[in-house]
Design a protein around this nucleic acid. Structure first.
Lengths: 137, 137
DNA sequence: TTTTTTGCAAAGGGTTTGCATCCCC
DNA sequence: GGGGATGCAAACCCTTTGCAAAAAA
């Protein structure tokens, strides 16, 4: 995650707590998960502050807002280009560090100015696969 | 879109209307858009039926449920493998017909059994770009 | 002091669910 | 008659918003 200093953000305790929760976090937490975790140290923390802070971080490019989970937004402090895989059984998301050559057809290149891309992989993680197979169901 | 016959679905007027609305539809409509359109011919149509039907079609692989739009699910009757681009300004989604070689790193291949993938492109469509540029804002 | 941020609570949008009714086989 | 489908409304979840109080610069 990029540093906050110099981006004009006021560094409040709430924001420090949220940043601390995100820093190095590889779990792709949702806003609610961040709220729950940060609330342990800051019981007065409100949802609004979490959402405000996440939106601000997203707008400044300090976190990525992932749409891969159909039920909620997830946040990733790793803003270097990478992709993701989601377990269709349990929803677990893992990073996929790979570079792909993703050229779009001419008609699309004509119709859109591209600013980025993201590959979503769908699969079943080992834990879910192991849980499902042995029973022979 | 694949045919419904032989999949055990009862072909009710409501479902025919929803299928008719989706057939060949390249607009990636949301459930609400489908509801509005189908309601014109079937004023008694309920949201529950739209959602029920879409879930059923999705479970049977007859439509794709897209998560590319962070605000709502969108549905695509074209179930042949393809990708999408979304305009970050207006939310318009277009198909990207291209095949990519998307091999995942060994650690991911070990941890997940892959079942599919999807590339999301982000950009600005010509309409939004034209609207933004000329004013020099 | 001036501006920003917080916390609370309510509202909002999209989706799901419970249940009685209805329809078709 | 019986299982499934429908319609309605309420419930639910996640997210956003309005506003007064509090905190930061």
């Amino acid at each position: 995650m990029k540093t906050v200093s110099g981006s004009g953000l006021k560094l409040t305790p709430q924001r420090m707590a949220i940043l601390g929760c995100l820093e190095g976090n590889r779990c792709h937490p949702s806003a609610e998960e961040i709220f729950r975790q940060v609330s342990q140290a800051y019981p007065m923390m409100s949802f609004a502050t979490v959402y405000n802070t996440l939106s601000m971080l997203r707008d400044r490019g300090l976190v990525l807002e992932l749409t891969i989970d159909p039920t909620r937004k997830r946040y990733d402090p790793n803003v270097t280009p990478h992709h993701h895989v989601i377990c269709l059984a349990c929803g677990k998301i893992a990073d996929v560090h790979a570079e792909y050559d993703l050229n779009v057809p001419a008609d699309i290149a004509d119709a859109f100015v591209m600013s980025g891309n993201h590959v979503e992989f769908y699969g079943t993680c080992r834990a879910c696969g192991n849980a499902a197979q042995p029973k022979g169901e």
